[in-house]
């Protein structure tokens, strides 16, 4: 089971990065109560039958691991969503792409903590894939609203590579400065004890 919501994001994004996608779009939208994630790709997509199977922990396509009988990424996410009153949807079309949406009620006492978004996105942007990755983050609270957006191609252009430890340290600083910029409007989500 994953410790942070960002761990689910990282796990689900990898499916898109390995689906022969041209562009992977990631949305992280946070308001007073919910954090909603959207991971959309234009990769190979799944048939309706495969979409249903992907939600079964005892299914994998067998491509990465020939004798493997389990695939836990989406089942882990669904389990946590179900346990915490969250949202989950998966839409896909073969040859067109897949969109996974999931949201968590931050006031639910069993919802995992958000985690560290900048370092999670370091892992996302440095994943060995050649597609474009666009990450958009927005925060809207009683104190105001703010957002930021990053693109893999621009980062690659500025840093030269997304592989060497020196580049990744700078990438982390850059992403953290984007997220820190939202501090003035950030609120803590204190769970309701019912």
């Amino acid at each position: 089971m994953h410790v942070f919501l960002c761990d689910f994001l990282l796990d689900i994004v990898q499916n898109s990065l390995e689906a022969d996608s041209g562009t992977v779009s990631i949305l992280i939208e946070e308001d007073r109560r919910m954090i909603r994630f959207t991971v959309a790709d234009d990769g190979k997509g799944m048939s309706e039958e495969t979409q249903a199977k992907a939600q079964d922990p005892f299914y994998t396509d067998g491509i990465k691991h020939a004798k493997r009988k389990v695939g836990l990424g989406i089942p882990f996410l669904k389990q946590t969503v179900d346990e915490t009153g969250g949202e989950f949807s998966l839409t896909s079309a073969e040859g067109k792409g897949t969109t996974v949406r999931f949201g968590f009620d931050m006031m639910h006492v069993d919802t995992p903590p958000f985690g560290d978004l900048p370092s999670t996105l370091v892992a996302v942007f440095s994943y060995p894939a050649s597609c474009e990755i666009v990450a958009k983050r927005s925060l809207s609270t009683s104190l105001g609203s703010g957002k930021w957006e990053v693109r893999r191609s621009l980062l690659l252009d500025a840093l030269g590579d997304l592989r060497s430890s020196g580049s990744l340290v700078l990438l982390e600083q850059y992403l953290r400065s984007q997220e820190d910029d939202l501090d003035a409007i950030r609120i803590s989500h204190d769970p309701e004890i019912r």
Partner: peptide, 27 residues
């Protein structure tokens, strides 16, 4: 990821940076 691989990634970057090593490929 469930076992803490992201902490491992974060720590590699931090410790390599502390030792002023910038050219290890971290993938």
């Amino acid at each position: 990821i469930a076992a803490g691989a992201k902490v491992v990634l974060d720590t590699f970057l931090k410790v390599l940076d502390e030792h002023k090593i910038t050219n290890v490929a971290v993938t």
